[in-house]
């Protein structure tokens, strides 16, 4: 089972990692410029409909959106540092993050998928107790107990589940709702052409155009498409089988990079989460400790003998 050796400190490291990604993301995607769009263009999406119109009248102004951006960055940074009381900070922060994510989607009525897997994993981390990891402070030793580790393992498995399930859903839709024509050799060239010509978001349109002129690469892509679909379908098995998991991570990472190069579509948040959610145990934490000369500390904490039972549901 995945994460069966993950410690609470390792889960804390992943928590910091995810919230740090969001800090970078929000800082680079400030919404205040969206105030130029008329209020009438905005239709709240999904759960954001529960908020009254008067709230959006105030929010969708330059000052309102700037305040949202700044408060959100502060909240996310605090979460990345693992401040306490954890839930009091983390839950409002992820609600604000949801709001921030809903604004462009509500303005243009288009459901961008790039950020959603990471958002789901973030919800899980916000809901569970924050256990021992702090980037700048010293590691918690007293509270890092075996009970904390049990909670952390559940947290990590749940976060990994909500992260991998969408891959499976994509494959299910492809298999369940599509006719056989999508497996033809023309599907991927059509998509590559669609995204390579015209405006190129990441400036890599030339790669796709070159590939379109290479029948051998197109043939290889056509063959790989059903293979990738099967691997996506079986994504939940990553929770159970280590070897399958490693194969899956390599294939899916390659898939994300290929969609960037060939179709100008880049799920960078997902790519950043692949190693922290799908590598066993505390691999990333060990690398981090190595970088910051904390290796001895991690090794000594990994064998934690003290038990603080009530910490499990703190």
């Amino acid at each position: 089972m995945i994460h069966d050796t993950t410690t609470s400190r390792g889960a804390g490291f992943v928590r910091s990692w995810i919230f740090s990604i969001w800090v970078l993301y929000v800082a680079g995607n400030m919404t205040h410029a969206m105030a130029v769009f008329p209020r009438s263009q905005f239709q709240p999406v999904g759960l954001l409909r529960i908020l009254p119109d008067s709230f959006y009248d105030v929010l969708l102004t330059s000052a309102g959106l700037r305040t949202l951006d700044l408060v959100l960055i502060a909240g996310l940074a605090a979460c990345a540092l693992g401040v306490r009381p954890w839930r009091l900070v983390a839950i409002p922060t992820v609600l604000l993050l949801t709001l921030q994510q809903g604004i462009p989607r509500g303005l243009f009525d288009y459901m961008n998928h790039n950020e959603l897997s990471a958002l789901y994993a973030t919800y899980v981390f916000a809901m569970f107790p924050a256990t021992g990891f702090s980037v700048f402070g010293s590691a918690r030793t007293k509270a890092e107990s075996s009970a904390d580790d049990v909670t952390s393992r559940f947290l990590m498995v749940l976060a990994t589940s909500v992260f991998v399930v969408p891959y499976s859903l994509i494959a299910l839709r492809r298999l369940g709702w599509s006719d056989w024509s999508i497996w033809s050799s023309d599907l991927l060239p059509s998509y590559i052409a669609q995204y390579s010509f015209g405006d190129s978001w990441y400036g890599v349109g030339a790669v796709g155009q070159t590939v379109l002129g290479s029948p051998w690469i197109l043939r290889a892509l056509t063959i790989s498409f059903p293979i990738v679909t099967v691997l996506e379908l079986l994504a939940p098995l990553c929770l159970l089988h280590r070897r399958f998991r490693y194969v899956w991570v390599v294939v899916v990472a390659g898939f994300h990079i290929s969609t960037l190069l060939l179709m100008d579509i880049f799920f960078w948040q997902s790519l950043m989460l692949l190693p922290v959610l799908l590598l066993d145990g505390d691999v990333m934490l060990r690398w981090f400790d190595k970088l910051t000369n904390r290796r001895d500390k991690h090794d000594s904490l990994h064998g934690h003998a003290s038990v603080e039972p009530n910490a499990a549901l703190r």
Binding site: G46, Y110, R173, Q194
Partner: peptide, 30 residues
Amino acid sequence: QLFSISTAAFPLTQWAMYSQKPADLVVSYD
């Protein structure tokens, strides 16, 4: 996912990618 709800269930959504064959004539905009 089953009921193909897209924006109405935000932050949840329907996941469907490369599941429809695009038109034979590819159109791009600059």
